[in-house]
Amino acid sequence: MIRPNPRPDAYALTVLYSVPDEAWYVELDDLMAGRRAVVTAIVPDEDPAREPTVCHDPGSGHRDIPYDVMRWFMEHVEEEIRTSRAWMALRPGIVEVIRALREEYLGGIGDEELVPVLAGLRDTVPAADLADVLRHAFGRGPDGRMPDDA
């Protein structure tokens, strides 16, 4: 469980997705200095070979970041890694299927495209892995529906 921001008057997070980088950026912003992104974590979510990294803003010089703030930031980074890259911990064959689908359909698929893709997946992916493939490739459940569909 991620703790609340220990110093909300001095630090904040910005989380954004970079399409060209195929990665989530989690930025620790120093509000008191009027600076943004004193520390940035980059969490690739498309390529299992790319590892997450953390960088400090070289333009801001040496910055003292309180331990509780840095720990809070790293908890958020850890959660982003867990949620963005969970599919990469599946069996290698399934990871490759998910990666290919994410690349081809850019993480989303229309209802009209889903039926033929689902038929093909049923022929190539074990039934026990089908739900994971749909969830991680398209954000859909085993019935093909989006999680927020009624």
Rank of each mutant, 00 (worst) to 15 (best):
M1Q: 13
R3M: 08
R3Y: 05
P4K: 00
P4W: 09
P6H: 04
R7N: 08
A10C: 12
A10L: 15
A10K: 13
Y11S: 06
A12S: 15
L13S: 07
V15T: 08
L16P: 00
S18M: 06
S18P: 12
V19F: 10
V19W: 08
P20A: 12
P20W: 06
D21C: 02
E22Y: 08
A23P: 10
V26W: 06
V26P: 05
E27Y: 03
E27T: 05
L28E: 06
L28S: 11
D29R: 05
D30F: 09
L31M: 15
M32T: 15
M32H: 14
G34R: 09
R35S: 12
R35D: 07
R36N: 06
A37T: 14
V39Y: 08
T40R: 15
A41F: 00
A41S: 07
I42K: 11
I42L: 14
V43P: 06
D45T: 07
D45V: 03
D45I: 04
E46Q: 15
E46G: 13
D47F: 07
D47I: 02
D47L: 00
P48M: 05
A49V: 11
R50A: 11
P58F: 04
G61L: 03
G61R: 02
G61P: 01
G61I: 01
H62N: 08
H62M: 10
R63Y: 00
R63W: 00
D64L: 11
D64S: 09
D64E: 12
P66M: 04
P66Y: 05
D68H: 06
D68I: 05
V69F: 03
W72K: 03
F73G: 06
M74Q: 09
E75V: 01
E75C: 01
H76N: 11
H76M: 07
V77P: 04
E79N: 07
I81V: 14
R82V: 01
T83C: 05
R85Y: 00
R85D: 08
A86Y: 02
W87A: 03
M88F: 05
L90C: 07
L90W: 07
R91P: 00
P92R: 08
G93N: 14
I94D: 03
I94W: 06
I94H: 12
E96D: 14
R99L: 00
L101D: 09
R102M: 02
Y105Q: 04
Y105K: 04
G110C: 09
D111E: 15
E112Q: 14
E112N: 04
E113I: 00
L114P: 10
L114Q: 02
V115T: 08
P116L: 03
P116Q: 09
L118M: 12
A119F: 02
G120T: 05
L121G: 11
L121M: 13
R122G: 00
R122L: 05
V125S: 12
P126T: 10
A127R: 12
A128R: 15
A128V: 06
A128D: 15
V133Y: 13
V133H: 12
R135A: 14
R135K: 13
H136R: 04
F138C: 02
F138K: 03
G141H: 10
P142G: 13
D143F: 02
M146D: 11
M146F: 15
D148L: 13
